[in-house]
Design a protein around this nucleic acid. Sequence first.
DNA 1: TATTTAACTTTGTAATTCAAAGTACTTTTT
DNA 2: AAAAAGTACTTTGAATTACAAAGTTAAATA
Lengths: 99, 99
Amino acid sequence: MKNHLEALNKAFESRVRLGIMSLLMVNAAMDFGMLKEQLNITDGNLASHLNALDKLGYILITKQFIGKKPNTSYAATDHGRKAFSDHLDALERFISRSN
Amino acid sequence: MKNHLEALNKAFESRVRLGIMSLLMVNAAMDFGMLKEQLNITDGNLASHLNALDKLGYILITKQFIGKKPNTSYAATDHGRKAFSDHLDALERFISRSN
DNA sequence: TATTTAACTTTGTAATTCAAAGTACTTTTT
DNA sequence: AAAAAGTACTTTGAATTACAAAGTTAAATA
């Protein structure tokens, strides 16, 4: 495919992963429950998208206990921030050529 | 899913359909061969994406003969232009909140 | 002891994407 | 006239992706 369309990152073609990453760009960290609430998807679905981002090295997963409750929190890695920001740049370039 | 992420059009989550529509926004019409060359995909694949866009009423298909050769050309409908432009607007809004 | 909560994992299904092969119709070449 | 080639598909089949629902684990609470 010609154009600058190739610069788009396949990982962010999914609405859910786009949503997760944009939340993690703005918030230093978010836990499973917060993400689930914001994205309004099932926990299994959320877990699998988080797993996909983790495999790409885009997020860092931290498991801990807060008080007596288990808590897993997610943060964007530098690598993930770079990838996401590159993707947004590619989208911007794409948009500006398209109108 | 919260945010303005819902405003993204599912039809344009595919790189190929994004490419087709952006070509048809810029060029009043393109034929099968031109699209195939620009997008660099197999003809079956192209045909099926064109079919998807047609089913949504986003493109207009015109079959004719040019000289002795069959020629099918594709153009964006008003409805398609609106949908695509709305999608780009949603992307722009999304981007501006994300950095 | 039974139930609840958090965060998964597993299972199974449906949808999506794609390449490759096949088809229909016509034209060009042999 | 028969064979080959070109255009634009359609069909087939395989691989990938996405998702919901149910099951799992471990600790906490009733």
